[in-house]
Design a protein around this nucleic acid. Structure first.
Lengths: 355, 355
DNA sequence: ACGATATTTGTTAACGCTAACAAACAGGTT
DNA sequence: AACCTGTTTGTTAGCGTTAACAAATATCGT
């Protein structure tokens, strides 16, 4: 399963970059200037004679010098990065938000460093601390539920914090999100308006995915408000539940309440799994049972029949969080404090063929 | 769309963590010891009187102190993180690899910091430099194709480098991957063995996704080797191509070569799009046309009919890269140099109902 | 009780960079 | 020439931590 190097040269050329990593002083000596001048040449906005800058750039290239931003940050108090914690690196919704964040930060000199929490507040806590140890200039977290210690860390971080994707009851600072409960309610109301009465919910067994839990709460609230028959809730698998689990859940649902007319799934993925299982069993969708999802993943628009879902402006969650952050960082540099904001993000029910 | 803070207390409690962030010295003073002793208490392996350690921990909690690892790294030359660059944060294959990496690093004291390149070598170059500025202890990149400058940066980084997911012609250092071309060939050979002769390939228009390009090359090689009729290649959309584009591509394919018997898609996502489009048009799969994908995404096992694909041990790509890295870092600390390794990862054709 | 050894703590000097100030220099004006 | 102004470069100190060494204290055998 493994072979050793196949290079022809006797010594691997790239040992360790031949000798110790060059420092700014090395560059300065080669260019015949002081270290400070090199520092200025590598940043913009400083006054430097063009020819000096060229000479320095040449020395930088020659030595393969790369600035040590940790050391720089120590001195300047500007580490040049923003930490973002997302639950999963396999979810197009969070991917869109991350892209929005990246786009918002573009050109600001701030880099985005990602960590993934695997939908666990405990892992989130560890990650918050790890990130804080590197002194990010701001932190973006997903959701408004944290461990007690995680929350305290964020509160005391001394940098702008944005909670996204939810509307926390008691926000830490800024918020960019929407009410998953309301969105879920809206979906139930849409189904109601289309004549469905016996409406069930398919989700995970725990509250690990807090957005999933909120969606279930929204479903329950809507059922109650509309005066519909008792809750039909199938809980199956540890969140985030998979396609396969969605498939197994719909089977259980039909077994347990054969009269069910529609199933609201906690996400498009489980909805898709349910849909395919229906296919496989010859249950017509939406005739036998209607299926709705959440998130407007690509799959729900592509599959056949296309799945009714709730579309959220995920990109904008990231983008607005990023812009808010930039403002907050700017204010902080001027020793002001940006008034706390809660930015509401749009969502909308997207009727399709599965309901 | 936005409200100001709704807290009842007149002053937001969490201003900026009341005053400047505490330093190690602050902790030391509270605990009645020297800064060095605090430093020792916060790491393990150093000899410290248990009661002193307790006192220090108490002071740490009281002040909400968080270690500044940048400063620590400056002094100790150990930044405690590994950089990993992946093309996308919305791809379960790379997610599995990232999880493997995380698991391999667990308990080593090394944190994983992710950056995403969006399948672009130019963005990769920028990210490599950004990461290098923070002095990672090792770097994991996806693929063996980089910009000239990106490659040079990696070569001169002075830290272990692992290229993953491909078998680069001219590796920088270590490699953990497999031949996408061979895997693709294997899939074509499987189709051949099952009686298919007129086999097409659906992929993107550019070589941006280098793994996709390799898979096309593998298809072409197999076609040639098997003495099959000329290449039928549909290129559609900028990689990574979407489900929808897969759907459009299969339509074009059938229009252009109505006698086609099977389509090999560059990934499961495009294969799924193609499959659904066939559904929609009433083309039976695999009778009218067989469809195969690549990657064994969850979707290809869940959908109906399930899609024949190539399964890759993605987790192990990350896991073995991580273990290799740990070894290399260890060797480096002892001023030795770990012999370069190429670790081959397993893949296998997974026959399902779509072929 | 004595030195010898092990354990725990402290002191000093970097690590690589940039803020803040100081100095040198150019060009123009009187 | 003396002065002012603006641009460019240099010097010094310090950011928060840890390595390396030194010192103090505890533990032990005889």
């Amino acid at each position: 399963m493994s072979r050793s190097d196949n290079k022809s040269s006797p010594e691997p050329k790239h040992e360790t970059g031949r000798g110790p990593t060059p420092t700014m002083l090395d560059v300065a000596i080669v260019a015949g200037v002081s270290a400070m001048t090199v520092s200025r040449a590598l940043r913009n906005g400083s006054s430097i004679a063009p020819e000096t800058r060229d000479r320095i750039k040449k020395a930088v290239d020659q030595l393969g010098y790369v600035l040590d931003q940790s050391a720089g940050g120590l001195s300047s108090k500007r580490t040049g990065f923003v930490a973002a914690l997302i639950p999963s690196i396999n979810n197009s919704n969070f991917a869109d938000s991350a892209r929005g964040l990246t786009d918002a930060l573009e050109g600001s000199g701030l880099q985005l460093l990602l960590g993934y929490t695997d939908y666990s507040v405990e892992k989130e806590e560890v990650l918050i601390e790890s990130m804080l140890k590197r002194r990010p200039e701001a932190i973006v977290v997903t959701g408004g539920v944290h461990t007690a210690r995680g929350r305290k860390l964020l509160e005391n971080a001394g940098v702008p914090v944005v909670e996204t994707w939810d509307l926390p009851v008691n926000p830490i600072q800024h918020v960019v999100g929407f009410s998953n409960a309301d969105a879920s309610s809206a979906l139930v109301e849409y189904l109601y308006a289309n004549g469905y009465r016996k409406i069930a919910f398919i989700g995970g067994t725990t509250n690990r995915d807090t957005r999933g839990a909120d969606r279930r709460a929204g479903y329950e609230a809507a059922i109650k408000r509309l005066g519909l028959e008792g809750n039909r809730i199938i809980s199956f698998g540890t969140p985030p539940i998979t396609m396969k689990q969605g498939g197994e859940a719909i089977v259980r649902l039909i077994e347990q309440w054969p009269d069910v007319e529609a199933a609201v799934c906690v996400s498009d993925l489980s909805a898709f799994g349910a849909l395919m299982e229906c296919h496989r069993r010859g249950w017509q969708v939406p005739e036998r049972v209607a299926i709705a999802g959440f998130g407007d993943f690509e799959i729900s628009g592509t599959c056949h029949p296309a799945i009714t879902t709730v579309g959220v402006d995920c990109f904008n969650i990231g983008f607005k969080a990023g812009k808010l952050l930039l403002q907050a960082i700017q204010h902080k540099r001027e020793n002001k404090w940006l008034p706390l904001e809660t930015v509401l993000i749009d969502y909308r029910v997207m009727p399709r063929d599965s309901t």
